[in-house]
Amino acid sequence: SNGDSSPPDSDLEHLSENICKSHLETCQYLREELQPSNWQTVLQTDLDTYQKKSQEDMWQLCAVKVTEAVQYVVEFAKRIDGFMELCQNDQIVLLKAGSLEVVFVRMCRAYNSQNNTVFFDSKYAGPEVFKALGCDDLISSVFEFAKSLSSLQLTEDENGLFSAYVLMSADRSWLQEKTRVEKLQQKIKLAMQNLLQKNQRDEGILTKLVCKVSIIRMLCHRHMEKLSAIRALYPEMVQTRFPPLYKELFGS
């Protein structure tokens, strides 16, 4: 192409529509399904059940839920124009590094700021539900992040574009065609900028969103730390009881 001329608006419009459609098709729970009024919050009886679980059982339950969510993110990526045109190595690298990041972005859709609960296991659950994991610090950081991102009140389209932006991070290690990913991420960022302007969002929201990326990465890093700590405690557990996709993504 002739240097870095920014893509025509029609290209950006088309990419924006493609990503928003992909998001709605693969968002796992539709917005209306997630209405807190549709779901009960975890009752004391349930709470006792969760808190009485062994650390291994609770880790296994959460690993299964994370893996379910990640599969929807893989389908989201496949539907984004340009992703399947990347070389297979880069598709794998972006998903391995970014799928859990996108799950954290999507989680704010399933967060109820009224009572600091998140949709989990068909109920709205607070941080205390996850006590048996033995990761209270990480769990409270995750809820804090969900609270802060949901306070931006992103529309579905904005959430979809931000998810795509996070996924197509060109600074991932081991990318073979870094420039191609950079161009794709830049296009997505411009499309996101256009959408935020169209939605008359306040000036600083794009900067706020880009700043959230470092927090998302810190959460993913701490997830890996907790995983290696639990694996040191129960070496067999991850191998025998966690979903294969979870092991493939986070095992090494």
């Binding site: 098709e25 693969t26 796992q28 599969q71 929807y72 893989v74 389908e75 496949k78 399947m84 297979q88 598709q91 794998i92 998903l95 391995k96 294969p244 996709l245 493939e248 993504l249 090494s252």
Partner: peptide
């Protein structure tokens, strides 16, 4: 390919939104 068999398979198979 060996290390990421499942991801490769998910990327290859064309699943419709219904499957999701």
């Amino acid at each position: 390919k060996e290390k990421h068999k499942i991801l490769h398979r998910l990327l290859q198979n064309s699943s419709s939104p219904v499957d999701l």
